[in-house]
Each structure stands twice: as C-alpha cells, then as structure tokens.
Amino acid sequence: MTLALVLEQLLNGVQFGLMLFLMSAGLTLVFGVMGLINLAHGSLYMIGAFLCAAVAGASGNFWLGLMAGIAAAAAAGALIEMVVIRRLYARDHLDQVLATFALILILSEGVRMVFGPFPLYLNVPSALRGTVSLGIVDYSLYRLALIGFGLAVALGLWALISKTRLGIRIRAGESDREMIAALGVNIRALYTIVFALGAGLAGLAGALVGAIQSVQVGMGEPVLILAFVVIVIGGIGSIRGAMVGALLVGVIDTMGRFLLPRFFATFMDTSQAMGVGAALASMLIYLLMALVLIFRPKGLFPAHG
C-alpha cells in the first residue's frame, strides 16, 4: 500500500461525495421547502443519464448530451411536480412515499420502454480522457473534472440561495410557507421551480456519473438511498449539511472498501479477509448514520435550530 494509492482512493472518495451532494442537494431542498419526501429523485438521475447517453451517442458531443440530460431531468421534474407531486404536499409522509414509489415504477418502466432493456454506454468526452499527474499520483482527468464540477455547482448553488431573489424566496419558504404566500409570492410557481432545480441537479449528477458507469434502469435507486443517508447525517433541509454529509459518506465508503480488507489481511488469510472486509465496509456508512442519530438525532446541521 503506497501513499499514491491512498491519495488516489481519497480523491475517488471526494469525487463520489461531490456527486452525492448533487443528488442530496435537490432532495434536501425539496424537503426543506415543501416538506416532501421524494423517492422518485433517483429516477430523475436516471433520466439525466439516459438522455445524456442517447444525445451524446447520436451527436457525438458529450456536452450537448449533458445539456440534454439536465434539461430533460428538469423538465420531467417540473411536469411531475405539476401533475402528481402538487397533490401530495398536504398529505402525510406515507402517501408521499407510496405515490413517489409508484412514480419510480412508472418512470423505470417508461425508460425501459423507450430505450430498451440493455444498458447504454456513455464515453468520457475526448478533452477529458487520460490522466493528469498530481505529483506522486497519475489521476484520471475526468474524475478530477468531476471534482471541479461538483465544487463549482456547489458554489453556484450557494450563490443562488444566499444572493438572489429566488434564493431569498426559497429560504423564506423553508422557514414559513404560509407567510410568504400571504406576502404575495406565487408559492405554486416557487414549488415547481424548486422541484425542477432539484431534478436538474439530479439529472446533472446522473449524466456526469453515467460516463464512468453503465447507464441502466435502476441506476438511480442505490444513489437515492445513499443520498437519504447523506441528508439524515447532514440534517434534513440543510444544504451545508448535505455537503458535509456527502463528503463524509463518499470518503468513508471509498476508504472503507479500500482499507478494511487490507486491515483484516494483516491477521487473517487473504480470501477470508477480503470477504469480511468487504462486508463490513458496505455497512460503514450506515453505522456512521446510526452514530450520528444517537448523538445528534436531527443531524449534524439541523436546518431549523
């Protein structure tokens, strides 16, 4: 085990964490502003990846695909909000879970009907192929770009929420929905915009990750569940919490998978150590979540005090 290898894994963890942040930011915003639990957020991630792969495949241009992925996810989000989600705000969480579970079934089968049962492949854009030397380690240029992307989007989101009029409305919506409606803000339009914004972020994450994984139906749900873990750790409704939670989950998960089997191999035989290490590594982030819950039941950064 060399320092270079550890550094590479650490960067992978940060990259994974930032992609998780893109997912979690939308989820946590939607919950914070509308009080809605949206299981179908993973389907928007999938839609982003599929549209990106299809358009990039047809046009040969990754960036065109990326734009199409974001736009499709945001449009799907706005449509879903207006047709279904809008009816759920006043309902209890059980109804929200069920209706959005139904949406997953519909969207997954819909994508399977349109794109067929086989995975699509999305190539890394040619400008970002190969590796780049970071002193002691040669690191994938694309993954490094993902880190940059993630940070840039996080910065943009921060600016949007703290510096713009829309951001003021979103923050006002988080603290008192009835009051800002009474002040004359078109709350229905605001909800649609917030939902579409979250959907677009999920679509962006799906499209970006699609180039390093295969694009297939069902790709969104594992990420969705990790995003839940992230926002439970970070505190539901808090963007800052989502960032910290996402980085924690990304780094701990990646490093756990890398280090634990090697750790057990120091006193067990290798194949057994691989099994035990991998099994424990897959549980690490959930244990982290349990610990956070024991000591900070509202997450690390509770949104409302």
């Binding site: 639990i37 969480h93 569940i225 439970v232 539901i236 897959s282 549980m283 819950l293 024991i294 509202k298």
Partner: peptide, 17 residues
Amino acid sequence: RTSGIFFIMITLAFAQM
C-alpha cells in the same frame, strides 16, 4: 428516536445495510 420522514429514511437505510 426520530419520527416522520427521518424514521422512513432510517428504517430504509438499516434494511440496505
């Protein structure tokens, strides 16, 4: 220790574990 939406997500996460 939690309720509502937290409870839903946490039971889900433990099952995933």
